[in-house]
Design a protein around this nucleic acid. Sequence first.
DNA 1: GGGAAATGGTTGCATATGAAACCAACAGGG
DNA 2: CCCTGTTGGTTTCATATGCAACCATTTCCC
Lengths: 155, 155
Amino acid sequence: MPTDDAAPTSFDLDHFLPYRLNSLADRISQALARLYETRHDLSVAQWRVLAWLHHREQLTAKQIREATRMDKARVSRAVQALEDRGLIRRRPSPEDQRRHELRLTEAGLALLEELIPEARAWEAELVAPLSVDEYRQLFELMARLEGQLGRLEGE
Amino acid sequence: MPTDDAAPTSFDLDHFLPYRLNSLADRISQALARLYETRHDLSVAQWRVLAWLHHREQLTAKQIREATRMDKARVSRAVQALEDRGLIRRRPSPEDQRRHELRLTEAGLALLEELIPEARAWEAELVAPLSVDEYRQLFELMARLEGQLGRLEGE
DNA sequence: GGGAAATGGTTGCATATGAAACCAACAGGG
DNA sequence: CCCTGTTGGTTTCATATGCAACCATTTCCC
């Protein structure tokens, strides 16, 4: 816990974690988004929905919302777009007509089988300068921050 | 460089760096943005402009754009809003009439003297679960990724 | 010097997004 | 069973933002 408490004035954004983190994440996200968007015409939200469906097979919008922490509306729109493109199928849940069960279609699966390796390759290039250990540590640290964030929000 | 090359299908977004990083950064940024916004009615862009001006004393829009990597337009609008509120002053540069020199006003400075400690305190809470060393390492790793990103973009 | 290209900054436009209102289906007391 | 409250999901509205066109000034080069 670096408490540089005293320091009265001088403030450098470059040493401010939220700023640095956000600016790095934005850059990464945008670079990657270009890849999804130009090559496959997918938004980030759409890609996330697809990826989760690939991972979990069958989900409802709510579950995706919880997994990704995206806004209701954002999920809803992504789902709609994907359905329109025939990449996912959506049918009312038998036990609750409000819910819709979402699944990949064949086309969706095919697209993902193409996309995932691309994404992985891109990530690999990005993290090339990190050792395996450093890579792991980065995740560790992020997880720790997420935990703390949850604690801070949860009160 | 974790090359888990083979792995044909299974893909978990939670282990995908761009996703995790972005989602963490977004959460942090939003939480903090609420602080700026509700307490001082500042957008993130505006906060960044102010913070840089606090740090560097006098800057042009372009310099801010370079420092923050924000869009021209975003900077321009933030600057305008800040000027309207009397938090910064803007005057044409003597040696180039296109440029405007930006500076904090007294009011702007006063606001920052209030805001900066708040921001610092918030950050301190966030990173409370990290040791000083881990905190440093996190910056180190982020810097490494930024470097790589630059390399990837620059070709 | 004078026209072409470059540069700092602003504005118009299209799109993405979050918040809130809304709608339909379900749950639970009375 | 109704009637109220809740919940999954959609839609509407206001705002933020990136891109591109634009304007004014400066610089380059002949």
